[in-house]
Design a protein around this nucleic acid. Structure first.
Lengths: 214, 214
DNA sequence: TGTACATCAGTGAACGCGCGTTCACTGATGTAC
DNA sequence: TGTACATCAGTGAACGCGCGTTCACTGATGTAC
């Protein structure tokens, strides 16, 4: 730690320009792609530009990723990890089994979409190829599992109860739709004046308390 | 009608290959782009390939459209027209003011997404440029208006009532989310076993009957 | 501790490709007289 | 009805561009002895 030039990759935040061996190219490429996707939308990025942003030649990425789709998959995978953690953190901030915990999971979801609309779109737009990767499917199920867990706790039923599954899916779809509409027309058509939390609490309550098979 | 060669464009379904003046190039280009978008996703099309499919040179489209984004806007505009008509038709098949009419609007929406997932994504993914066009925004409001009208009739309140607006938005977001999830993982993660109509009736009931500001 | 060497992670030049768009052109069409 | 002409809707060749990917290469790194 006394000699910076001998250990350039020990400062992950700072781009170690001088280093020949980059230290953390994969992560920096993924970060660059994330930025580009936010700027130009899903598929609005190129391997070449990502490499440029990471300060390497356009051939360098191919030392770490097989091809363009594999880079995209990396971005999606990393994003899904962050999304799941955010949802779990949201739930943990409220009493276990409370309606607020359910709504908080939804809020984490909406917040993610608002903060990174491009990445959010990327995660949920196939854009050929990446939708079949088994690890991504597993991560998707992991995210859904957070919703199921919160709903199950609220309903005081086991997570594999069919009714829990149905209602968790309904909750997910509502929050998903709200997220998309929010980032699509950022308050143009407007959400009819309801703020996120009001929306989420109302939806959670309606979906979890209404007798579905009436 | 007795002489086909003198009136080639009177048969819109059949491609009038021999005609020098194409007759209906704009519509055929839009149809070609629609097909390409279904095949390769939003932005997975090119002006060149659309022209090829329409059987004209790659310069021909520019006689009718200023540039690529304008073609895209044409596709979106046409799709939104069809979506609105489908929603209205759905509602009209059920008693005015019934919950079924509301659910039928939703079903038309989901059916559209299922039938044309690529176009559906295109309509709701900005992909730069087309989101600001005032005519498209107006058509978007037109579609939302169908939901509002059905909800208002069901709630027996005027369409401009704030509560009607809120609930119409909630309905929309739920159906929107269900549509996206449906086309994203076509029954991979599954919708927890509920079919469209059950989902739509349940959501309509829950959202329209639950006292929001409890 | 020093040296030899395999491996790793870059470079930069090059490839072929398809794209968006423009251009001067030309054949077909519709209209005025 | 016939002719002259403006306009319309195409053609096809060409442009410059940036991309994905490959290639032979080279400097840095880590390890075995």
């Amino acid at each position: 730690m006394s000699d910076q030039t001998r250990d350039p990759q020990s400062h992950p935040g700072v781009p170690p320009k001088a280093a020949y061996h980059h230290g953390d190219l994969p992560a920096q490429l993924i970060a660059a792609v994330r930025d580009l996707v936010e700027l130009h939308g899903p598929d609005g990025f190129s391997v070449a530009e990502a490499a440029r942003r990471a300060g390497v030649s356009s051939a360098a990425p191919y030392k770490h990723f097989k091809d363009r789709p594999e880079i995209l998959r990396g971005v999606v995978s990393e994003a899904m990890d962050r999304l799941r953690v955010a949802m779990q953190t949201g739930a943990a901030a409220h009493p276990h089994g409370s309606l607020e915990a359910v709504a908080a999971v939804g809020r984490a979801y909406v917040d993610f979409a608002r903060a990174e609309p491009g990445v959010f779109r990327l995660v949920f737009g196939l854009t050929e190829g990446h939708q079949n990767a088994p690890d991504l499917l597993a991560k998707g199920e992991g995210c859904f599992g957070v919703v199921v867990a919160a709903a199950a706790a609220c309903m005081r039923l086991p997570p594999d109860d069919p009714d829990v599954q149905s209602r968790a899916y309904m909750l997910w779809s509502c929050v998903h739709g709200h997220s998309f509409l929010t980032i699509d027309m950022k308050h143009k058509v407007a959400s009819a004046g309801i703020d996120d939390w009001t929306y989420l609490m109302a939806i959670s309550h309606a979906v979890l308390e209404y007798p579905l098979r009436a």
